[in-house]
Design a protein around this nucleic acid. Structure first.
Ligand code: ZN
Ligand code: ZN
Ligand code: ZN
Ligand code: ZN
Lengths: 139, 139
DNA sequence: AATCTTCTTGACCTTTACGTAAGCATAATT
DNA sequence: AATTATGCTTACGTAAAGGTCAAGAAGATT
């Protein structure tokens, strides 16, 4: 998408440099995360700097636990407001905020789950210690 | 499996009383979690107390976030050492312990994930505040 | 020229825990 | 007797994120 004369990279090299597979890159294109990729002679995919930045951005969000479907929404905004970061950024912050909330909720869930397991464990241990003759403890 | 003359319950009633669907119960039987269910006249499934206890036990573990595959392992031990709770219980405790460990790990992961998101958010906010003229912030 | 490497698209496979019919049998109620 | 409720088995569908061939095309190297 850039008109600059920057270095071209092919899919294999790009995948290796980002420690992902070529399938992943093609898949992101397939579901519309990466726009239509330019080709060399109409065949091999080629990427220059801005495309790579976009892919890195996607991977970054993915590492933050944001689903590809959510990233796609962002990606759409990205396309509509090309390079207009003043428009994109607030939306991104909004999404990150709601994601933080969800992460907090998950942590709370796990916390109470842990309590449940430990309590259950204690109950079972007590059965073992005190009622080892009970043939049907009905945990 | 019991020879006692206890109340028989059919699948619909059982499902409703446990707030699950009949499909779930049949599925658990299908994958070997519930043993072969006795039938009434060779057709309709019937459950008595011990079968219900077993199902409750499965649901309990599931609520603790243990996968059906893991529960199946327990279920096998359950079958091999029928009613021998002195053998089953230590194994159950072992599984619960390893599960607590995994929950702790997940919580740690989410915690560091949260930190990442917040940091990222701060960085973006700074771009918005200080570099609003930057057309390519490369988040 | 022959081989090797990387690329292409297409399409089916994987996992988890069921949901959702389709088509039929039995049981209960009207 | 007719309708309604409940049950049965079989089997395909679902979501997420790619994995894994297959079979061919092009460029690079020996
Ligand atoms: Zn480009
Ligand atoms: Zn889109
Ligand atoms: Zn029984
Ligand atoms: Zn088994």
């Amino acid at each position: 998408m850039s008109t600059e004369q920057d270095k071209l990279v092919q899919i294999g090299e790009l995948a290796k440099s980002l420690a992902i597979t070529t399938r992943t890159i093609r898949y992101y294109e397939e579901i519309g995360l990466m726009g239509k990729t330019e080709r060399i002679g109409g065949r091999a995919r080629s990427y220059h700097k801005d495309d790579i930045l976009r892919l890195k951005f996607i991977l970054k969000l993915k590492n933050l636990g944001i689903s590809l479907k959510e990233i796609e929404k962002l990606s759409d905004i990205f396309d509509i407001n090309k390079k207009n970061f003043d428009v994109i950024t607030p939306k991104l912050i909004e999404i990150l905020d709601s994601h933080i909330t969800r992460v907090d909720e998950k942590m709370a869930d796990f916390s109470s789950l842990r309590k449940d397991i430990v309590e259950y464990r204690v109950r079972i241990t007590n059965y073992l210690a005190n009622n080892s003759d009970n043939r049907n403890p009905e945990y």
